[in-house]
Design a binder for these strands. Structure first.
Lengths: 216, 216
DNA sequence: ACCTGAACACCGTTCAAGT
DNA sequence: ACCTGAACACCGTTCAAGT
């Protein structure tokens, strides 16, 4: 693998142009500037000043690249409150940070939701921290992952919603009068944020009650 | 093709081979049998016994086709409890039916989350019913959509999670001992279902409390 | 009006050839 | 070991031509 296969005939081997880190960084840059539709292997190669086929010496497929991106994004999620503050406060700041990260990477959501985490070191580290925080907070082992997955489902759904246009529910008032009325009643607000705040507060309140009930 | 090519001048025009309904039905069939990756315009045309380019006389793009599919899937969501039972019971059965429908159409989730509903009649009808049910249950107009979107976010996130493999959180125990322990503590269960049930019960409990608090 | 067949620009990926 | 350039199979979509 690492093949230090001898003299290499006396000249030092020229350093490779590419690496996982360089490729990931270039992909992130590309996405931030031009969006996910611009993330093609050809565009990525172009950004790196290299032929498209050269990428395949370092990454096995585009899907693999997306998994690298996932781990990179997960690295930015702040879970430092676990262990430092009560489990529910930590869960809240984690959820907010999590949503924010994936609101900018909505197209990653369907990929990450179904991909085993084992190959993604930062992702594993994140879950370890969250699980430890919940356990320390008093959650029984057999419910910890249910709590994590439930909150995560809400967060990822909210991240998708955050990418939606503001007028997504606009509709001619005559065919859906109640809908038109309740949609109209929230004009001017940051609607996606309001829904997320309401939902998160609701989930946290419900979880606190549930844990309390477990104790009695 | 079948071209009963008759007078065609004074004869009634031959009925077109395609229609929105036929195309949608064929697409659903294709997806159910071979999955979303098999849904290409070429495969769809093949299924309908027609040239790929013929599709574009009826549907403007593949994205438009996905929107038809969305409306078709939404039509299967059961929201009949709204108006017939208390708002929280109706919300629960709606959420369960909603998740089930999209667990089978996970690849549609990122599309529907960002697409205006106006062009989708069944979708509009669904939201109208849900909004009316919540309003009748006592929710103030300016919070109805927040509740709907919050629950919907959780539901769609859970639908994605339902498509995940069971071993998604499996990890070598030495590098993440707590995670390995809590993941191991739920073996044998339908993990996605357990997380959804816990989350849904939590959300509903939280919403009931919130509405009660509003009343006082 | 609605279909066919050829064509286009693009996609991810493979592979022989070079160093 | 790692890169280039040519090639492949496929994708969604367009369009002139037929009826």
């Amino acid at each position: 693998m690492t093949s230090s296969e001898r003299p290499r005939r006396r000249g030092r081997p020229t350093a490779p142009l590419l690496s996982q880190e360089k490729i990931t960084r270039a992909a992130v840059e590309l996405i931030e500037i031009r969006g996910y539709t611009a993330l093609t292997m050809a565009a990525l190669a172009r950004q790196l000043g290299v032929a498209p086929s050269a990428l395949y010496n370092h990454v096995s497929s585009k899907r693999q690249l997306l998994l690298w991106l996932q781990d990179h994004v997960n690295q930015e999620i702040d879970c430092s409150d676990f262990g430092a503050r009560p489990w529910d406060a930590a869960l809240e700041s984690w959820a907010r940070s999590y949503r924010e990260a994936y609101a900018r990477h909505a197209l990653l959501v369907p990929v990450i939701a179904v991909t085993p985490i084992a190959g993604s070191p930062h992702t594993v580290a994140m879950y370890e921290k969250v699980a430890a925080g919940l356990r320390a907070g008093g959650w029984p082992d057999d419910q910890v992952m249910d709590v994590v997955v439930a909150v995560e489902s809400f967060v990822l759904g909210s991240a998708l919603d955050a990418a939606a246009p503001d007028d997504i529910f606009d509709v001619p008032g005559d065919q859906a009068p109640v809908l038109a009325a309740v949609v109209g009643a929230r004009v001017g607000r940051d609607t996606a944020r309001a829904a997320f705040d309401l939902g998160l507060a609701t989930v946290l309140a419900g979880l606190r009650d549930r844990l309390k009930a477990l104790g009695t």
